[in-house]
């Protein structure tokens, strides 16, 4: 029973970080219709940048983490300006392929700068364990979940009340109409890429400070795809709810199925979920079902 509670709590908290990363994906998809398959690499590279700033340059976290976020903003702006903007109005295949090319490039860049491929970040959160009922949970997970929740709230408020946020939602709804109203659509695109990169960076920092930096972070990004598929590609609410579900299923499955099947089942459960969701409810829990007309 203690196991169960443990799995549930870890699953939900890790799942919230997945949600955070997934929201960056949803943001880009909604505003510009681009599927960002380089998500995993963005998570990895931003955690390496954090490493460079906190460990290699030795800055304190209160100064270093904001710098990382600023760098993530710059990266997002660069990607949008130089890769996606020339491809506006191209078929979806090119848009997917360009992010694949980007993921390949970032992979190389990471090896180029940090060839040793595995390292640890300094612990950003207190590590004392907390007893919840019978379960023993590392405090770090709760901090990560708390920060994710805080960011959800901040983003929700941003989209609801700020001028730019409203413009972004409007762009997601109808690009043509927004353009006709005089809102610069390209600016919205680049803003959404910047925000998405920042979210990937924060997700990367949270995951890396708990589990260290390594290629596992790319898989974290990949798992976020299952979150967006389950939640629905164009739904923030879906991403928020689906993240903990995926984390929960992953941890419960990893806990109870490993003995029955093969080790490593935890890593493929999100992908099996993708296939199951595709077969049953292809547009996810909250995704808009697209009705096509000729």
């Amino acid at each position: 029973m203690a196991d169960l509670l443990q799995f549930v709590i870890t699953g939900i908290t890790v799942g919230m970080v997945y949600s955070l990363i997934a929201m960056g994906f949803v943001l880009i998809w909604k505003s510009s219709g681009v599927a960002n398959l380089a998500l995993g690499q963005l998570v990895l590279i931003s955690s390496w940048v954090t490493y460079a700033i906190l460990v290699q340059a030795g800055l304190p976290p209160w100064l270093g983490v904001p710098i990382v976020i600023v760098i993530a903003f710059c990266l997002g702006w660069l990607i949008e300006r130089f890769l996606l903007r020339p491809l506006i109005a191209q078929p979806i295949l090119s848009l997917i392929a360009v992010t694949l090319g980007l993921s390949y490039f970032l992979d190389g860049l990471i090896t180029f700068i940090w060839p040793w491929s595995v390292d640890a970040l300094p612990r950003l959160f207190p590590q004392d364990t907390i007893h919840i009922g019978t379960a023993v949970v590392s405090q770090e997970y709760l901090w990560a979940a708390g920060i994710s929740l805080l960011l959800f709230t901040a983003l929700t408020l941003y989209f609801k009340y700020s001028r730019m946020g409203i413009a972004m939602r409007a762009t997601a709804d109808d690009q043509m109409a927004v353009q006709a109203c005089g809102i610069p659509v390209t600016k919205i695109f680049s803003r959404s890429w910047m925000l998405a990169c920042a979210m990937a960076a924060i997700g990367g920092i949270l995951m890396a400070s708990i589990g260290g930096i390594g290629h596992g972070l790319i898989d974290t990004g990949m798992k976020s795809f299952s979150v967006v598929i389950l939640g629905g590609l164009d739904s923030f609410l879906g991403a928020m709810i689906a993240g903990p579900i995926i984390g929960l299923v992953e941890n419960l499955g990893g806990g109870y199925l490993t003995a029955l099947t093969w080790p490593g089942i935890k890593e493929v459960i999100p992908f099996i979920m993708i296939i199951i969701v595709m077969m049953i409810k292809p547009y996810g829990l909250f995704g808009e079902v697209r009705i096509e007309r000729i």
Binding site: L83, A97, V98, L100, G101, L102, S103, Y104, F105, L106, D107, G108, L109, I110, T111, F112, I113, W114, P115, W116
Partner: peptide
């Protein structure tokens, strides 16, 4: 840093695709 050159190939392939 030693080992950097193994990152060249993926970078070039990615850049070529893009």
């Amino acid at each position: 840093t030693s080992g950097w050159a193994s990152g060249l190939k993926p970078m070039i392939f990615g850049a070529v695709i893009i």
